[in-house]
Each structure stands twice: as C-alpha cells, then as structure tokens.
C-alpha cells in the first residue's frame, strides 16, 4: 500500500478489537490487523490475495486449504490467523519460481494428477511435506500421507503417480543434500 494516500476506514464494526500479526508468507514478511476470529485461510485469500489456497468444507475434512506452517501441513481453515503470528507459511504460490515449476508441480502435470484443480494446491503442499521427510516413499506411504486431502475428480491414482514422479525427480538433489551434511 502506498503511503501517498490511503482511505481512512471508519472504526471496525461493533468495536471488535483487532490484533496485529506478522507472518512470513512464501518468504515475504506480511503484517496485518485481524479480528481474533479470522481464519488463516481467509487472511491468506482475502487479506493477502493469495487465492490459490481453497476452502472446500467446514469440517476440516477436505484439505483443499492445506498450507505449510513452519514446514508442517496445516489446514488453514482450522487455524486462526492470530495463531500463525510469528510463523512461516508456505502456500501454493510459493512452490514455483517465476520461471520454473517445482518438481511436484511438474509431476502433477506430467501424470495428469489434476482435473478441476480445486484440491491440487492442498495436495501438492501435503506431498511436499511428505517428500521433505521421506524422499523415497512407497505407493502406500504416499496414499497414507494424502489421506487428509479429498479429491472428487481424479480417483487419486494419478495423484499418487505424480508424487512418485516428483520423488524420483527430486531424489538426486535430496541425496546430494544428505551427502553434503
């Protein structure tokens, strides 16, 4: 927001107190004033305009809203924005660089791991957390790791293949990392 001009908003409705939160989102420090009851998913989507994080349910079942909080998958519909204060959040927008897709994204494209694309951001972030921990998962391990994320389109088989594709692609790098440490 420019400092040259800014609309002065009237007092928040009903005198509800707001809290200031500082969250590192995709490597960038973001500051926001939020109502304590605001969900993290809504802050990301409406506040930070990162609409790649989707919401597909109201009961923490679908996983479309999955983001990584300090590297761990979290359902951002079930976390208050204030709970993310001081933490690092990664959303789907943080996966690719400007020019290159992340191997997981490449895998989803190559193995046709998405149809409508609504579950895809959550699936990919859950997959990333899995591969960060376990660079060489079995099919069953992938299926188990993804079992908190629903997909209505693909029947999962191609999603599983996508993740395994990405694992294979990332492995030399992962191995090199381990050698170096």
């Amino acid at each position: 927001m420019t400092t040259l001009y800014e609309e002065i908003r009237p007092e928040p409705h009903g005198g509800i107190p707001v809290r200031r939160v500082t969250i590192t989102v995709n490597g960038e420090k973001r500051v926001a004033e939020v109502e304590p009851r605001l969900l993290l998913a809504h802050l990301l989507r409406q506040g930070f305009k990162l609409t790649g994080t989707h919401t597909g349910c109201d009961t923490t079942n679908c996983g479309a809203c999955t983001v990584l909080v300090d590297g761990v998958p979290a359902k951002s519909c079930t976390m208050l924005a204030v709970q993310a204060d001081g933490h690092e959040v990664m959303t789907v927008e943080g996966l690719a660089s400007a020019s290159e897709l992340h191997p997981i994204q490449e895998g989803f494209k190559d193995e046709h791991g998405l149809q409508c694309g609504f579950c895809t951001p959550g699936m990919m972030l859950t997959a990333k957390a899995l591969l960060d921990e376990n660079p060489d998962p079995t099919e069953d391990e992938v299926r188990w790791a993804l079992s908190g994320n629903l997909c209505r389109c693909t029947g999962y088989q191609n999603i599983v293949k996508s993740v395994l594709w990405a694992a294979a692609k990332m492995r030399p790098a992962a191995a090199a990392d381990q050698d170096g440490s």
């Binding site: 989507r45 994204q105 494209k109 694309g117």
Partner: peptide, 15 residues
C-alpha cells in the same frame, strides 16, 4: 489449463 491451476492461479468464483 494445468499451467494456471498448478500455480494457484485458477480463477474460481470465490477468487
């Protein structure tokens, strides 16, 4: 269509 969906750049109604 994957190019936008994979980057979280789909354009669904709620977006």
């Amino acid at each position: 269509e994957d190019n936008r969906f994979l980057r979280g750049k789909g354009n669904y109604v709620d977006d």
